[in-house]
Design a protein around this nucleic acid. Structure first.
Lengths: 209, 209
DNA sequence: TGATAAAACTGAATCTATTCATTTTTACCT
DNA sequence: AGGTAAAAATGAATAGATTCAGTTTTATCA
């Protein structure tokens, strides 16, 4: 059915064709990359495969991510945010502050444990960002974790369970400890059990103020 | 002067020709890599250049390091140990425990600050080791830092300046904090000033037990 | 001393991420 | 509608790390 003059509508208020195409393409790229990373492993997946699966040229990938590593962040950072939220909601409750913290953080660790190679690649790039444009997004996730820790601590103080004066500072220290211990685990310096033990001991000490 | 039968000595007790050659070659490789990394930058230096400068084939490099990243560790890990020792010796003294800790850790930061690109490459590979054979060496450096922190803390306790029950645990927490904050700085999430401020506040809090 | 096997070495070939000159698509204007 | 310039997309070309089949060196032993 050919379009006639009568078909003309008001200029579409929404995103134009160009922007829509870009989003579609980005979604295809992210979807293809996620599927391949998860089914074949990060290292085994080539950009050529991702481009083919997404139906774009290889060069096109670089319009959306600055490198293969950056692509991992593009693909999984949103998911990370979801994991943080979910793990916070699902944390052990009612329970002592220490148990809540452990439960929350272990939820994050459990997510990474499902695919260690991918977790390594993701954390590696999160830690050593190659694309400065991603800084804000990464900071947001880190801040979200710190904020969740802070909420748990405040709850403990309100319950009279613990007595901390500088909650913000303690929350940031706890995040540092969590982050570094998680890296040590992902890099093979610690077993999962050692990670749990260390975190347990360190958080417990920090709670005693 | 041609070698005669009379020249024959007892079988050399020391390393044989094979081992000596290997060491020579490794020294040449390490020297060439260090020189090029420092003069041109890590990213600009190719393995071809290193091999040429060391007078070996490119394939030979992979008999000594498992990758370009691993080569950085091979080249600079020894130096790191020296830096830790030197920084410990040169630390502010006599001074309060907090100042000694700051002085010690800032010495390490100052070393990295001399060449940020190299520091990034080194810390990236230390954190996400690709060559498992290097695990022991890396652990040794980390343990050395923790041990130095512990010594300073013990000195403080002996002086009656601080009152910490679990010194080992606190030392490990401090290392975690230091490590993570240093990564955040190297990755551009923190300025040098923020790094200093954060470390100062966190260490101070940890000292108050 | 010569023969033999193991170890070390080599650099050309391979494999992929990344770049870039060219082409295609889109938005905008008359 | 047609013309134009900017934006997006493309994939062949490039570059550089890594591999590997073949060569050289070293140690060992008859």
């Amino acid at each position: 059915m050919p379009r006639t003059t009568a078909d003309r509508r008001a200029p579409p208020a929404g995103p134009g064709r160009r922007e829509r195409n870009k989003r579609d393409k980005q979604n295809r790229i992210i979807g293809a990359a996620r599927a391949l990373f998860q089914s074949q492993g990060y290292g085994q997946t080539t950009l050529g495969q991702i481009a083919a699966a997404a139906g774009v040229g290889t060069g096109t990938l670089f319009l959306y991510a600055s490198s293969k590593e950056d692509l991992v962040v593009l693909v999984f950072l949103d998911e990370m945010s979801g994991v943080v939220d979910a793990s916070f909601k699902k944390r052990a409750r009612p329970a002592a502050v220490l148990e809540q913290l452990q439960s929350f953080l272990h939820g994050i660790v459990a997510y990474h444990a499902k695919d260690l190679e991918l977790a390594r690649a993701l954390m590696k790039e999160l830690t050593f960002l190659s694309n400065p444009e991603r800084t804000r997004s990464v900071t947001r996730v880190a801040d979200a974790i710190i904020e969740r820790i802070r909420e748990i601590l405040e709850w403990g103080v309100a319950q009279g369970e613990i007595d901390l004066s500088r909650i913000d500072l303690v929350a940031r220290i706890m995040f540092s400890v969590f982050y570094q211990q998680q890296l040590a685990w992902l890099s093979g310096f610690l077993s999962r059990e050692q990670l749990d033990d260390n975190l347990n001991a360190m958080l417990d000490h920090l709670l005693r103020g």
